[in-house]
Nucleic acid binder design. Structure first.
Lengths: 218, 218, 218, 218
DNA sequence: GATGAATGAGTCTTCATTCAT
DNA sequence: CATGAATGAAGACTCATTCAT
């Protein structure tokens, strides 16, 4: 009994080691230059180990991508929840979380997007994720507008919102010519303007979470 | 003398053939799947020819990326010029040109960015280009604001402008869940709102250029 | 003392388990596809156990081959003995036993031969076995001929006998285009003709042995 | 035009080089120990060349096997044809050709048979070949029997014939405890006895062919 | 003694690069 | 100059063996 449990734990631990090693390797050497060699080095295991826990290198890469997305998604949900019940505050939280702090693995996402272009499975995964985020944004906007008796082009506003975030994130990742605080401010200001709210009432700093950070670790 | 010139021309032709073949290959097979084989096939030359005109496959890829950027840049400049002297109209033209039409090689740019992350030279190239575009935007915004006696946060507005464009382009490239007309509309509306202009006065269709298309050809 | 004996018994049991698992694995998955993994699965033991009882996988394979040969040899001896004292009947029994029944591990022998070609030890083993069988055949033929006052080219006849058996077995193993009864009949008829005996007097069915089957078990 | 022809020639030459190198490697090191490395060494080419002329190592092995079989088959047909129109003489020729001389690659066949056990494609190929040889034997036996007004169990006799040959060949390959002349003699004597012919009239030496040897070369 | 997780040598395969023609 | 055949380095994957528990 105990042995079986322990074994499962070991398997999960090792898989996680490899996944984090993969993300580190991609962040460090780039996607193209990440070989089984570099991944295993970053994971602190031998080259042959991948075969024990993943079908192939490709399988590991997929797992790493999904893990990263899942972590970011989870992080976003927590931030939104922490913002309380007000849909407008939740919107702001959703907009700021992407720029909450100097994230690890920021470059990895870009590598994965590039890869997704010629990987249908990855692309599908990405599209689902973004569609969900946009749908969630639309729901919050609908409620916030209703509370204010405003008429807003929900669909286009949600699109602006998500793509403004992506665009700011993309530029920041590639250029580092502006900082995260600027990103947060721009997003907050845009959403405040949309709902005729005073930005001064909505700080760009994220509420500190009490519990342990749900960030990707490694 | 003439022979030397002709030779230079031939060299340039061949280099261009290979560059366009590279872009076609990436668009067709993806970045990872583009081999010397596929590139030369697309270029209509034999496998060994790359060595005559480029230091290496990597050198060719860099050249192709820079070529693409140069073309897009040139295209943007022409569009802006075609918009006439009015800085506001020029701004709109600059914002719409990215979404002017279903572009060839849209995916290549994303690959290019991903590659740039681990290639200092490419990254530098990219940063210069974007800095220039932002600077140009700032100049136009300054003039447009002055004409209207408006006070505008130029730096942040320019940042919004460029990153909104990038974000919309990124989402369109990856998801195809919205169309180019939507992108054009969102960009136009945002810039019109910034300057208190009526979007109805500014169509999202690009003025037809009389001269030959400066688009990347191949 | 008893403990030591018991231990030796355990060792022999384990070795036998592994040997039979090896034969099963080869028969089931083929020689090339038999890995330490499949062998240990078939043996019902863990992967690391081979190292305790055999020097290496190769050592185990050799042991399995020799075990199989020893079993088949033993089986043949028993069949000959069961045929009674008459040398001619003994000859027939020796000829039929190979085709006595749909044997397990029929394919293993062919793999064994192929392997023996580049394994001097195995080859030596095989040659000794076949030499002994041929010598035994020669003795029986000599006696059977003497009883009948016949002059027979003993050496060549024995060679025909053994190689006819091998050839029929080989074809049956590879092709399954004829059945074991045909093999038994052809061997019996040939040997009967050699000694001018009426085949009708010598059934191709093997006498049932009373004792436990000496077959390779597993 | 000439270039295309030359290219085809080169391709065929290279493929043949690799096939012969494969056979040499198997003969020299055994089937299991033949790696891309040893094969290319024997072929006198670099390790990467296989990929240019064969889909994979496995594809090359299949080609080598089929080449060997085709050569042996061709050789047999020529020998039978050289024996003239008499079906009985043709039968003898067919029986002797296998033992005509110390063949190259004699061990390779055994390795291939062993491999065929777990390779359906190979097995199918082998079965077809043997079925054809047996059918051809049956036709010759039918004619030879008709000429002599004899009644013969054609099917069983053909089976005896082919399997006697295989058995003698197998023992000779594995044991070398008897020579090819003995094999030839035994086969000839058996077939002569079947048709009541005097072996003395049928030498075991093969008629010398005038043309160049069709043997597998390399 | 038994387990199975971990290792790393060995293999096949791909592909950018070279070079004789 | 252009070709494409040949090379060999580098990659991912397999699997017999080892060893801590």
């Amino acid at each position: 009994m105990k042995r079986a449990i322990k074994r499962v734990l070991t398997i999960e631990t090792r898989r996680n080691d490899l996944i984090l090693g993969t993300l580190r390797s991609i962040e460090k050497y780039g996607y193209q230059n990440s070989t089984v060699q570099t991944i295993c080095e970053e994971s602190g295991v031998s080259r042959g180990l991948i075969g024990h826990y993943f079908e192939s290198k490709d399988d590991l890469l997929m797992a790493a991508f999904q893990h990263l997305n899942a972590e970011l998604d989870k992080e976003a949900r927590l931030a939104v929840r922490a913002a309380g019940p007000d849909p407008f505050r939740r919107l702001i939280a959703a907009g700021l979380i992407t720029f909450a702090q100097e994230r690890r693995y920021s470059q990895v996402t870009l590598h994965f997007w590039s890869t997704a272009l010629s990987n249908p499975k990855l692309l599908e995964h990405h599209r689902n994720l973004w569609a969900r985020f946009r749908a969630s944004t639309e729901r919050l906007m609908t409620r916030a507008a209703a509370e204010r008796n405003m008429e807003i082009d929900i669909r286009h506003s949600a699109l602006m919102f998500t793509q403004l975030i992506d665009g700011l994130w993309l530029g920041w990742t590639l250029e580092k010519s502006y900082d995260l605080e600027t990103c947060r401010m721009l997003v907050r200001d845009w959403i405040c303007k949309l709902f005729n709210e005073d930005p001064a009432n909505y700080p760009t700093t994220m509420p500190v979470r009490e519990e342990g950070s749900p960030h990707v670790q490694g």
